[in-house]
Simulated scan of single mutants.
Amino acid sequence: MSYLETTHNVYKDAALVPDVGLCCTTNAIWELPGLKIPKIMQEMNYGCGSTVHAKDLTNNPKMLYVGVGGGMELLQFSYFNRQKGGVIGLDVVDEMLEASRKNFAIAEEQNDWFQSDFVDLRKGDALNLPIDDNSIDVAAQNCLFNIFKMDDLKKAVAEMYRVLKPHGKLIMSDPTCEQPMNETLRNDEKLRALCLSGSLPIADYVKILTDAGFGTIEIRARKPYRILDPENYPTDELIFIESIEIAAIKDPMPEDGPCVFTGRTAIFYGKEDYFDDQKGHILYKNQPLAICDKTALALSKLHRDDLFISQSSFNYGGGGCC
């Protein structure tokens, strides 16, 4: 049995009998006017963060969500779209698709604005998306890509890049781990299916995205996720796993490399009203400016004593420049 078959069976069982706690299930439950999340959707919330950000969802974007789970994030996306087929939900597990259909019928009873046909549920594989090129504004996946081994992960990212329109966004939430994992953990198909042993370091994760062509990367949140301890897992040391919420934007690749925002800020506090580095960055006195890592490095090389550059917070909230 391949690791993908193991994953299929894990989520088939989770579709037939909700498994509370299967994944992190600490996603934000949006509290919005008129939005009610059915209890069954919350119980089948098999994600490790949230991919729903209002700033990504203006002007009725065409959306794709891969790995539907219980349908909670699809419902949240539909709240911002409210068009027939405005959100495509894709899954390879028949039982999960059927469970989502039933959950949407409940959601329709509890939300007078929602119609089940707002969501176009389709069977499909993340490694070969049945979606046209350059047709999606916002694509998302939550706690799915970390399950894939490296070659399959690269294929899944490349497929998302293919279907996105220029400047479209891939919004993701996945477990990450900065510590090395032994081969026993890495090769444990069940632990990989449970979103544990496939966790990569953030830098490796980002490189996969930029190698696929994404010119802008935003790391929006970094949160504690799980501990793998020697008593319960095949490891000699405690392994700390975090989850990140990240956006990869299909911007053109800059000549000097991708713009990666990791929550760094520059503050000018000199005698003048502003500082202009003559490379497109104007910093007004005592006004924090979000900057990408590439710009942070360039500014640090100026060795100015009136310029503060913060370390990465891994919590980028938008704005700023590259």
Rank of each mutant, 00 (worst) to 15 (best):
A158M: 04
A221K: 09
K165T: 14
P224W: 09
L185R: 03
D204H: 09
A221G: 11
N146V: 15
E159N: 02
E178F: 04
D211W: 00
K149D: 12
L194M: 14
L191P: 04
L194C: 08
E183G: 06
K190M: 15
D151R: 14
T210R: 10
V206L: 06
R220M: 06
L144M: 07
F214Q: 03
P166I: 02
M172L: 13
I171K: 12
K169R: 08
M172Q: 08
L194F: 07
P224R: 06
G213T: 01
R162M: 11
R192L: 14
T216P: 12
L194S: 10
C195H: 07
L209W: 00
L209V: 03
D152K: 05
C177V: 03
R192K: 14
G168F: 01
L194T: 02
T176A: 12
T184A: 05
M172K: 05
K223P: 05
K169H: 05
D151K: 12
M172C: 11
G168D: 04
D211P: 01
L209A: 10
F148A: 02
K154A: 11
K149Q: 13
K207G: 00
Y161V: 12
A158Y: 02
K149Y: 11
Y161H: 15
A221I: 02
E159G: 01
S173L: 10
H167C: 15
D188P: 06
L153N: 01
F214H: 04
R220C: 05
N187D: 14
I208F: 04
I219Q: 09
T184N: 09
E159S: 03
V206M: 08
L185N: 07
R192E: 01
L144A: 11
C143F: 03
E189V: 13
N182E: 13
L153H: 01
F145M: 15
R186A: 10
I147Q: 11
I219S: 11
M172F: 03
K155E: 10
T210D: 00
P166L: 04
S197P: 09
P224M: 06
I208S: 07
G198M: 04
K154E: 07
A212Q: 00
G215W: 05
F214W: 06
L144F: 05
V157F: 00
T210F: 06
F214G: 02
M181W: 02
P166K: 08
S197L: 06
S199E: 07
K169V: 14
I171P: 04
M172S: 08
P224A: 06
V206T: 03
L200K: 02
Q179K: 06
E218N: 14
N187A: 08
L153R: 13
D152Q: 06
K190S: 15
C143P: 04
M181F: 01
I147H: 15
D211N: 11
A203G: 12
T184H: 07
H167N: 15
I171V: 15
N187I: 03
V206P: 00
P224H: 10
V206A: 03
L144G: 03
G168Y: 11
